[in-house]
Design a protein around this nucleic acid. Structure first.
Lengths: 338, 338
DNA sequence: CTGTTAGCGCGTTCAA
DNA sequence: TTGAACGCGCTAACAG
């Protein structure tokens, strides 16, 4: 591969002139410039991003660590981040922690070693906030995505989970529901915890006793499944809310095995949900994250932070949409009516 | 950030000794070694991947360009590639061409400029094979993913599209279907073309006239939708096959608008399909790609090629699974029976 | 307007 | 068993 020296020789100029032509960083005589351009053409020269980055002390790249690349919501965020990154002339380095704290830490270190100009982080469930502390000491800007830690001094982009859950629950309570199962998933995940909080908010406002509700937050899917099954068996439950797509899938399967149909036997709603929800039955009421836009917003915050390190951290909460569908309608609430 | 000079000073050794300790590239006296390790610890030194890559002329990174990061099948491939990449100690640089030939070309150039050690490419629909020619001249190994060009001398990983479609069609023909609509999508995409070929194979073998079938390959979704609607309207069609998830969504919606139900009025099958197909009605017969494994396989081929440039290119076709479900059963075929 | 030169941080000869 | 010194390819400060 040709390098700048080759080009300089062929154009009979100094290597710095080549550099300046390439980067438009100072004026060069049109004819000289043309000679350089021709030489570049003829040698097939391409700038070496590595050497350039080493010298400039910036790579024009950002790192993204997601906690579960397999989940559709995260896949969409990745998509959004990539899209916004190219828009800003940044290359994306992608890593997946698979909800594993160690892998997350290694991924972050790898990306920092590669000198990414910024880092977007959707943290793994079991990951200690302490790791972030050390990250805060680094000079590399960090944006937290989806899983937020408001008490930490980072730029953050998430969804209005608490409020959305409250809106959803308000609706369900208004429809007459008094006995819920919330399949919340790992309580260490802030996103999920916020959703449970919103649930409590709504019940409190409606004077519905929280103690009579079943909140399943076991980390082990098999255990959660068993708990859901037994809760359904014990009777009285009129509505199930799942806090993520995998949990929704688990819950729907459990309902099926218990011989229960949505919405006839029990109402059902979920966060994140499934693709093309209007094409299939049951049509599931869903609180949907603007996942792509969250990715885009994260990049925007990151780019702004890269431009100016000073300025206090900002937390952006994007609004989720409450998509009401058949799974929370028309079912039989006689058993809970007075 | 501390560098090797700092470490060398603190350990009172030369920088080359530090390097050798770091890389285990030659024997060093245990005590010297320990001094270095301590110094690394105390300075918080981390190897600079950029400088290292520049010097070694390899980056331990690979690039992946997908044609549509928004499609679930590609998201899974990305997941698989990432997973296999870390396994091999490689960092993943991700780019999305969004089915745009220009974007694809720019993405490839960006990644090459960053000196990725290898490139995995799921090509955009409209992308000219010529671009690949110039790629072949580069020394960077390339693996084609999903969208294969068997006539080109690259390692390639795809699915057995033709054979899978043939199996699917065999089944449908055996069930009595004689009039199909195949919504194939962009005929320039090899994957889709292969599927149409498999369809023709099956019909040929079963002596069912291909000319009586409707194959919709218009690139414009709106046009394809209209063509499908009119085909359905004209009557006689008993089965619709979609060749990708977006096309399946479009087709199902069109069926719905036409007042047709699956499988009662018309049988339906698709490639790639939807997540959790057993939780929802209609349960759709699906030919499913091992997308994750395809990503893994692509990395494996790439790594092997990086190790030994010589050896003729290999084409790997992973087997798809034919998931038979209700959408191709129990429907009324009286209209086509003698 | 252009050229010379000193590193960026590291790996790797070549000598000792 | 270790160290000195060169250069990967580039940008930027300085000199002219």
């Amino acid at each position: 591969m040709a390098n700048m020296v080759d080009v300089a020789k062929m154009a009979d100029v100094s290597i710095s002139t080549v550099s300046h032509v390439l980067n438009g960083t100072r004026h060069v005589q049109p004819e000289t410039r043309q000679r350089v351009i021709d030489a570049i053409e003829r040698t097939g020269y391409r700038q070496d991003a590595l050497a350039r980055a080493l010298r400039r002390a910036r790579t024009d790249s950002i790192g993204l660590v997601v906690s579960d690349a397999g989940e559709p919501a995260f896949a969409e965020m990745v998509h959004g981040v990539e899209s916004a990154a190219v828009e800003h002339g940044l290359t994306l380095l992608l890593a997946n922690s698979a909800e594993d704290a160690d892998r997350e830490e290694r991924a972050v270190e790898t990306l920092l070693d590669r000198r990414v100009d910024g880092l977007i982080l959707a943290r793994a469930a079991g990951s200690e906030p302490a790791i972030l502390q050390s990250l805060g000491d680094e000079k590399t800007p960090v944006v937290l995505l989806d899983r937020l830690y408001s008490e930490l001094p980072f730029d953050q982009v998430g969804a209005d989970n608490r409020d959305s859950m409250r809106r959803l629950t308000d609706h369900l309570v208004a429809a007459g529901h008094r006995r819920f199962v919330v399949v919340s998933g790992d309580a260490r995940v802030p996103t999920l915890q916020e959703r449970v909080d919103g649930f409590r908010d709504a019940l409190w406002a409606a004077r519905v006793p929280y103690e009579e509700q079943v909140v399943i937050d076991d980390v082990d899917p098999a255990v959660a499944r068993a708990q859901l099954a037994s809760a359904l068996e014990s009777g009285g439950i009129t509505c199930v809310i799942a806090c993520s797509t995998p949990l929704a899938a688990m819950a729907l399967e459990t309902l099926g095995r218990a011989g229960l149909t949505t919405p006839r036997d029990v109402a059902f709603a979920t966060f994140d949900g499934f693709a093309h929800p209007d094409l299939f039955e049951p049509r599931i009421t869903t609180v949907r994250q603007p996942a792509f836009d969250m990715g885009v917003a994260a990049v925007r915050l990151l780019v702004e932070r890269m431009a100016s390190a000073e300025s206090s951290p900002r937390i952006v909460r994007l609004r989720q949409t409450l998509e009401l569908r058949g799974s929370t309608e028309d079912h039989d609430l006689r058993q809970v009516r007075p």
